[in-house]
Write a protein that binds this DNA or RNA. Structure first.
Lengths: 144, 144
DNA sequence: TTACGTGCAAAGTCTTTGCAACCAT
DNA sequence: ATGGTTGCAAAGACTTTGCACGTAA
């Protein structure tokens, strides 16, 4: 499994003329390990397992991997980008504006939306990038 | 109409113990006039009609108006917040990741989504804050 | 008058960039 | 060898904060 991941992006990089470096390896592993993380969190995570990768390299690597389609990002709060593996099953994020909790739901839940936007507006939804803000069950219960 | 808007937020501010100042008035008018704009754009717009309002006041005012529920914001790209009047009819933004175009669609288009998230997850969607990324009809036509 | 609000400037985040040294190929 | 990569430090873009003065109420 990890071997598969490795082989895949190895080839992906090389086939596009990019080099396979330890830093890129570490960043991708961190993204896979953390599941959902900001550039800072990824940097912190990488420091633990290695001497470290410079934060600017983290940014450059994430941008590269994103362009290659190996990772994806979305914006959960304010504007902080959150990265995750593109190979992760597609999912949509529900962010509670009260408690900050982040729920993941299957794209099935939003299939009707995708269909409606496609048929009604010719718009092709980027499901992996979708974040829905609102209030979660718990917070709705608490307040009015 | 403009009178209505004015009376409404005037009272809204005062009833919460805030003062009605020319700056706040200018910022709200700019948000109404521009329909969708970033803090910077709002600042620029305000400079045209008056000596100007300091950018930090713009930020403070937008935050205040947002808390009071007079304006709303969403994040279209990277992280630049886009403000618009809360009284605007609810609408959802479709952002094309290829050309950057922003389409507005009625919340009707996403009613099924709202329903599904509510019934399936007890999640109350903040429609006005929703932004959907993807590719617009034109860009889908152009490329493959 | 009183204390909320504003302008200004400095400080803070987060991200990008220039450049010389480094290393994957 | 040689050109893509990295680390470092500086520069940027955007936002927040401290403080003294200004002003709505």
């Amino acid at each position: 499994m990890e071997q598969d991941l490795r082989r895949t992006w190895d080839e992906e990089l090389r086939s596009h003329g990019y080099r396979v470096t330890p830093q890129r390896q570490l960043v991708l592993e961190a993204v896979a390990r953390l599941d959902h993380a900001t550039p800072e969190e990824i940097a912190a995570s990488v420091q633990e397992t290695a001497r470290g990768v410079n934060i600017s390299t983290i940014y450059r690597t994430l941008e590269l991997l994103d362009n290659l389609g190996l990772v994806r990002h979305t914006h959960l709060n304010h504007g902080a980008p959150i990265y995750h593996l593109a190979s992760d099953a597609d999912h949509v994020h529900l962010v509670c504006q009260d408690c900050g909790r982040v729920l993941q739901v299957s794209p099935e839940a939003i299939r009707p939306l995708i269909t409606a936007l496609d048929e009604g507006h010719g718009f092709e939804t980027d499901v992996a990038h979708l974040t829905v803000f609102g209030r979660c069950r718990e917070c709705r219960g608490k307040n009015a």
